[in-house]
């Protein structure tokens, strides 16, 4: 088993160590996707790149938004905006479990003192039409990561299979740093000239967004945006593959997928506003899934999706 490193002292140090670790293991370190998403899985570096035959290895931080989880920054563990660390390797290497355990050691979890367990937890994303088998990883009874072997994404069988790791960064960091309330967690080094806590950075925004998400967001505008994003996604994909201007074959899978992401996030906002009934809920999820599926269909026709002319 890997020997653990010294204890980190801040939230950002944990992120930096994960970045260094996975870079060292050969992953391309990506930057966060520049759109609002509910989880790191939505980043095209995961959703789209898990499709097709081309090998891929990426790791990145992804800011994630879950409007319904907002608690005005008062709940010790719940946030409407938080960070996920995401690793995707295709094909999944045979030593992925050990690589993962190495990453825990790298952020200072001592394997000799803690109890790490792989507990069955199959993953499914109804909005992405995706599922996989795997575990939630427990450290002393706390879920610190999701570990999934993707079997299907956007309705396509994954071949080869990607191994996906998702770390809930705040929760993991709170555990490693021994902090009970997320807002009390050191964001940068406590010894820095200007030491900042997580609350200094995010307490106010949690309040602002919670108010907006729950009570102010204009639902009529959101409903309209949903429909528009849906229409735009379909319109993009309806274009002929050969670009009349350049004469090149350009399938716009990524721009279409942006609209799918947008629709998904708007749906989450509408859900938080409480304007979606139980029966409608399924219908909305189905509509986003239909978009995701069409984007996946388009991506596998592109070069990055393994298409060979």
């Amino acid at each position: 088993m890997p020997k653990s490193d010294s204890k980190p002292s801040s939230f950002q140090e944990i992120i930096l160590r994960l970045q260094a670790y996975w870079a060292e293991k050969g992953c391309a370190i990506m930057q966060p996707y520049d759109m609002e998403v509910g989880a790191g899985t939505f980043h095209p570096a995961t959703t789209l790149r898990s499709l097709g035959s081309r090998p891929w290895a990426a790791a990145y931080v992804q800011p994630s938004r879950r409007p319904t989880d907002g608690r005005y920054g008062e709940n010790p563990n719940r946030l409407q905006h938080y960070y996920q660390y995401q690793v995707l390797i295709k094909p999944s290497p045979p030593n992925l479990q050990n690589l993962y355990l190495g990453s825990l050691a790298a952020i200072g979890i001592d394997m000799d003192l803690h109890d790490i367990r792989f507990v069955e937890d199959d993953w499914e994303s109804p909005t992405l039409g995706a599922w996989g088998l795997g575990w939630e990883v427990w450290c002393d009874g706390m879920e610190v990561s999701q570990f999934t072997y993707f079997q299907q994404v956007g309705g396509h069988d994954c071949h080869p299979v990607s191994g996906e790791l998702t770390y809930g960064l705040e929760r993991l960091a709170m555990y490693v740093l021994g902090v009970d309330h997320v807002m009390d967690m050191p964001y940068n080094s406590p010894d820095a000239p200007i030491a900042l806590k997580y609350g200094d950075v995010f307490k106010q925004t949690e309040e602002e967004y919670a108010r907006w998400n729950f009570d102010v967001a204009n639902t009529e505008v959101l409903l309209r945006h949903f429909v528009e994003a849906e229409a735009e996604c379909e319109a993009i994909l309806a274009q002929v593959h050969d670009d009349p201007k350049t004469g090149k074959r350009i399938i716009m899978a990524h721009p279409a997928y942006d609209q799918c992401i947008k629709a998904s996030h708007i749906f989450n906002l509408l859900d938080a506003r409480g304007v979606i009934s139980v029966t409608e809920r399924q219908a909305y999820i189905g509509r986003v899934r239909a978009l995701a599926k069409q984007c996946a269909d388009a991506f596998v026709l592109t070069e990055a999706g393994g298409y060979a002319a």
Binding site: L113, H114, D115, D140, G141, M142, D180
Partner: peptide
């Protein structure tokens, strides 16, 4: 029920579990 023995007789493991339970 932990899956291992530790040098500190499970003190760290128990403390972690207790914390999770608290949440």
């Amino acid at each position: 029920v932990a899956n291992r023995e530790t040098a500190d007789n499970g003190v760290t493991i128990l403390a972690g579990n207790q914390k999770v339970l608290f949440a």
